[in-house]
């Protein structure tokens, strides 16, 4: 019975979605005259000297969203810790080390993965990628190690420091613009030449901070969840 109701509901939703989106032509240039897309593309190239315009939108034009986004991640990690907090676990953890092959492989791959992550977020303003993507790659490196060794420890203190300092960097760069008499998050550094590593003013700095923050936060989330081990009553 419930399934039937749900299916009828979904049929209605489907009808309207198809109706609306069949009228939005795929791949068509819908905007004429002044519009946000052309404005962003133009300013990204000429005013900010950032070659990846997605990065300039994420970090500058809509940088306030990104600050909120970073906060969402931070708060998700906080809420996760609060929900799963317990003073001590009862019983004995049931855990195994992975096989030698996996462990050696993980060791071998760990450093290159971190390096790749760093590369991705350092070049976020030049090529596809950026802080979120790079941070995620770094977290996968730690995930690999956590899966290979059951007793792999990530220091909570270090994570907290990295997380907080990166977040503070982002917020203070924003506030610096305000203090210098500009607006919040406005660029105040020289913008360099487009397609140089040192270009785009504060944009790459913010994205690197985001990379560190995301890496630390995702690692923290994974670590908290993996520490929720299955316990055998002893």
């Amino acid at each position: 019975m419930k399934k039937v109701i749900v299916l009828i509901l979904l049929a209605v939703v489907a009808y309207y979605l198809v109706d609306v989106f069949s009228q939005i032509k795929f791949g068509e240039n819908r905007f004429q005259g002044e519009n946000v897309r052309d404005f962003y593309l133009d300013k990204s190239k000429n005013d900010l000297h950032v070659s990846n315009s997605v990065t300039s939108i994420v970090v500058n034009f809509r940088g306030f969203d990104t600050l909120g986004e970073v906060t969402v991640l931070f708060l998700a990690a906080t809420a996760l810790g609060s929900v799963l907090y317990r003073r001590k676990a009862h019983g004995e953890a049931v855990l195994f080390n992975a096989s030698t092959i996996v462990r050696s492989g993980a060791h071998l791959l760990f450093a290159p993965i971190l390096l790749l992550g760093a590369y991705v977020f350092i070049h976020g303003h030049l090529s596809p990628g950026g802080g979120f993507q790079g941070g995620t790659i770094i977290a996968t490196g730690f995930l690999l190690m956590l899966l290979a060794y059951h007793d792999y420890k990530v220091s909570h203190g270090v994570l907290t420091w990295v997380e907080s300092l990166a977040g503070l960097t982002f917020a203070s760069l924003g506030l610096t613009g305000l203090i210098l008499g500009k607006t919040f998050l406005e660029n105040f550094l020289p913008i360099g030449t487009i397609n140089d590593l040192f270009s785009g003013g504060i944009i790459p700095i913010i994205y690197i901070a985001v990379g560190f923050k995301v890496g630390a936060e995702l690692t923290g989330v994974l670590y908290t969840m993996l520490n929720e081990k299955e316990y055998k009553k002893s």
Partner: peptide
């Protein structure tokens, strides 16, 4: 102050509090 401080300052504080 300006309205943006109403958002920016608590965000700054949120990152600072763990330290």
């Amino acid at each position: 102050g300006s309205p943006v401080q109403l958002i920016a300052i608590p965000l700054f504080a949120a990152f600072l509090i763990p330290l």
